[in-house]
């Protein structure tokens, strides 16, 4: 119960928190009911119901195909995330050391941010083929800027008084970065991850729509070409579950590393 309450961005009185899990179950049931109703309304060949969809997911799970395709998509997203995310998060730390370089690179970075990455996908295919590398670079190109701009916001919010205090106390440039700049920036990087991780997964899926021979995006697209709406929907659900799981893991590590922050008071909303 407390885990539920802690994950909320605003304080809720203890007496009302008790109802949150029941409320959530209620909303979930209502969604399934609506889904089932929509399926009757539109016809199940257009919108398969939840039962048919989850039955398919079960079959896929038994045949190990679900595992294989999820792993492919997850690996692409993860590798792209590491490639683009680490680069995007590290760049602000380097730019901080040289205000001149920061000023000089600013227009180029915003121009590069403005390029629609989806439009670059054909180019990536030409360069890298339809293998896993194309999706990794595609994901990296999306994630890089999200992490870069959040990291930059963190760098800009570093308190110069804390830096001065540390310098007077004998901190080297590296120690200032490690102790003051890094700790100030961590919450901003988490905010970046919160947006970037789902984008990384959907980036990998979209990449697989365009060119792939495995992965959840490939499965969805392949089902579509066979007019298999159950397959399409099952694929979408699995992608959603993947995103939810990744988010939950992120939430946990965020809570642990930001434990120092003032907790929300028990005030009445």
């Amino acid at each position: 119960m407390s885990a539920v309450a802690e994950s909320l961005p605003f304080p809720v009185p203890r007496s009302r928190r008790r109802w949150i899990p029941y409320g959530r179950i209620g909303v979930a049931l209502a969604c399934f009911a609506l889904w089932q109703f929509g399926s009757y309304w539109m016809g199940k060949e257009w919108l398969p119901g939840p039962v048919a969809t989850f039955a398919r997911i079960w079959d896929l799970a038994l045949s190990a195909q679900l595992f294989r395709d999820s792993l492919v998509t997850f690996s692409e997203a993860a590798a792209g995330m590491i490639l683009g995310g680490v680069g995007g998060a590290a760049l602000p730390f380097l730019l901080r050391l040289s205000p001149r370089l920061l000023k000089a690179s600013e227009p180029f970075l915003s121009a590069a941010f403005g390029v629609p990455k989806l439009a670059l996908a054909p180019l990536f295919i030409l360069w890298l083929g339809i293998g896993i590398m194309t999706k990794i670079v595609f994901v990296a190109s999306i994630v890089f800027f999200l992490m870069f701009y959040n990291g930059m916001a963190g760098i800009l919010s570093v308190d110069p008084r804390l830096v001065a205090m540390a310098r007077v106390a004998g901190a080297s440039q590296w120690q200032v970065t490690r102790h003051i700049v890094w700790n100030t920036t961590v919450p901003f990087l988490f905010a970046g991850l919160k947006i970037a991780l789902p984008r990384a997964i959907s980036g990998a899926v979209v990449g697989e729509f365009i060119a792939a021979d495995s992965g959840l995006g490939w499965y969805i697209n392949n089902s579509r070409s066979l007019n298999d709406t159950v397959g399409v929907l099952a694929g979408v659900i699995v992608v959603t579950i993947l995103v939810i799981v990744v988010n939950a893991v992120l939430q946990r590590s965020q809570a642990r590393s930001l434990a120092w922050r003032p907790v929300s008071r028990d005030m009445v909303v």
Partner: peptide
Amino acid sequence: PGLNCHIGYVTQDDNLLP
């Protein structure tokens, strides 16, 4: 700053690391 730790400075704000 601090002249190689020869000059300490207790600032007006406490400047503790949050």
